[in-house]
């Protein structure tokens, strides 16, 4: 997993509410049993005026040359709602998105971001609108997202602090696989499990009752 410490990049404003994971990556774009090869289908329904022919829709923000190289999305509330498909985050990450700023995220999407080195930042709606305004014009404005300092440096020189849990912050900073970290707790897990099965034998289906 790619570490996240600090990035400087342009941002794209896409301030619509309830952008669901079907919009981020339509079902039909999930063609392989793989975490890769998904960026081409990112936002396919909005990005292409003809999805089959892959004709870019010039109205869609990420097709505007001014936003080439965008690593930050500034979006409306409840981003990533709907299907749990992690393909949404895989597609965003492969496209180059490292940070998403929103008033709120769906819980599953947010967890999926943390698992894949993408930083989800939740701030007040008014702050999202302030960021979106400065993101207009794309390449004119560079944002710096600093996870160590937990702040965003805006193009106008202002700073915006954000909150993130210690657990998630550490996962992103280390870039370590959470499974490896958890496997180090194997003894504790086995002890917990043994006492759970002893008190509630029906939890284990090892030997069918």
């Amino acid at each position: 997993m790619e570490k996240f410490t600090r990035i400087s990049a342009i941002a794209a404003p896409l301030v619509r509410e309830n952008i669901d994971t079907d919009i981020i990556i339509p079902s039909r774009e999930m063609k392989r049993v793989s975490k890769k090869g998904l960026s081409n289908g990112l936002f396919a329904g909005w990005r292409y005026s003809d999805m089959e022919a892959r004709t870019p829709d010039p109205e869609f923000i990420l097709n505007n040359p001014a936003y080439l190289g965008t690593q930050i999305l500034v979006v409306g509330k409840n981003f990533g709602c709907g299907s749990s498909r992690e393909h949404a985050v895989w597609a965003l990450a492969e496209y180059g998105i490292r940070t998403i700023v929103a008033p709120s995220f769906s819980a599953i999407f947010r967890s999926n971001c943390i698992q894949n080195g993408v930083l989800p930042i939740a701030v007040a709606n008014s702050e999202v609108l302030r960021l979106a305004e400065q993101a207009i014009g794309g390449s004119n404005g560079i944002f710096t997202v600093d996870l160590l300092a937990q702040e965003i440096l805006l193009p106008d020189g202002e700073k915006l602090a954000f909150e993130i849990s210690k657990q998630d912050r550490q996962t992103l900073l280390d870039g370590l696989d959470p499974i490896d970290r958890t496997l180090q707790l194997s003894d504790q897990i086995s002890a917990f499990e043994a006492s759970r099965f002893a008190a509630h034998p029906w939890v284990s289906l090892q030997v069918k009752p």
């Binding site: 992690e86 985050v89 959470p178 499974i179 958890t182 897990i189």
Partner: peptide
Amino acid sequence: AWGIGSTEAEHALATSTLRVSKP
């Protein structure tokens, strides 16, 4: 009972646990 992503499913299958922020 709650929905998760594929990587968390790997985690649950490999460790019988998940790291969860309390809602």
